[in-house]
């Protein structure tokens, strides 16, 4: 049986709840938007219900830990194919297990989820590091990112705490949405298609006057703080892979 859900985390948890309720094991759980139809089966569409989602969420927290539950959310945002079934399988095993199933590194599902979670963690950490804000004339600190996974929802907390008195916008140009913080709260925003191209590369005309000076100063600092006698490009590339260079002022 194939279950369709709305692509969100509460949606997936609702789908898992429903599979328990009707006592049917899914063979696939797919976001509705990705479903291409099939001649041979009629999928079950499960609507998102926050009370169902909450019951599954609380159950996982109780059976594993807050961290275990958080891992599932992070893994879903990895956009890996079939990650839904891994999560489903994990929830099922957790409910049956007396000990914290997340510790069971003998289990293939746990190992795969842990590996995905590790990749997510790495990407989150890189975004904490590699976001580069540019100050615009209307005093918005603006950054464009293109992360490997959909980590934007997982990084805003860090930036809210760090820059509470600064208006900022971080835009994911691969997934076409951004997070805008107005010194009160953060909201997801999208741009019209025609604006999208302009936003990848901010033109100098909308930048605050001193902006390019600070960028230049940072580039100079980056060069001066290097020790040529110790040059080690392999290590350099390992830490700053080329695909991230596009948005780094110093590269």
């Amino acid at each position: 049986m194939t279950i369709l859900y709305n692509g969100t985390y509460p949606g997936l948890l609702s789908a898992i709840f429903e599979s328990y309720r009707i006592k049917a094991r899914p063979t696939r759980i797919v976001p509705e938007a990705d479903w291409r139809g099939s001649l041979f089966e009629e999928p079950l569409v499960v609507a998102t219900r926050s009370d169902w989602a909450e019951r599954v969420r609380a159950g996982v927290v109780k059976k594993t830990s807050k961290k275990g539950e958080r891992m599932l959310y992070r893994c879903l945002l990895s956009e890996q194919p079939d990650v839904e079934m891994l999560i489903y399988d994990f929830v099922r095993q957790s409910m049956k297990s007396k000990t914290n199933w997340a510790d069971n590194y003998l289990d293939d599902t746990v190992l795969r989820l842990q590996q995905i979670d590790k990749k997510m963690g790495r990407e989150i950490h890189r975004m904490h590091a590699f976001v580069r804000f540019q100050q615009t004339r209307d005093d918005i600190y603006y950054a464009v990112i293109e992360p490997d996974f959909d980590v934007l929802p997982l990084i805003i907390d860090h930036f809210e705490k760090r820059y509470p008195a600064q208006t900022w916008l971080i835009y994911d140009s691969r997934r076409h949405y951004g997070m805008f913080y107005d010194q009160q709260r953060t909201e997801a925003i999208t741009f019209a298609e025609k604006d999208h191209l302009n936003l990848r590369q901010i033109s100098a005309s909308i930048l605050e006057e001193g902006e390019t000076d600070y960028q230049e100063a940072w580039q100079k600092y980056f060069t001066s703080t290097n020790i040529p006698e110790r040059k080690n490009m392999k290590l350099h590339l390992q830490h700053v892979p080329r695909r991230y260079w596009k948005y780094l002022v110093e590269k």
Binding site: A129, N226, I227, V240, E250
Partner: peptide, 13 residues
Amino acid sequence: GICHTYTEDGRCV
């Protein structure tokens, strides 16, 4: 901590 970039000698900045 967070390493915001790395110089060509592979050291964290």
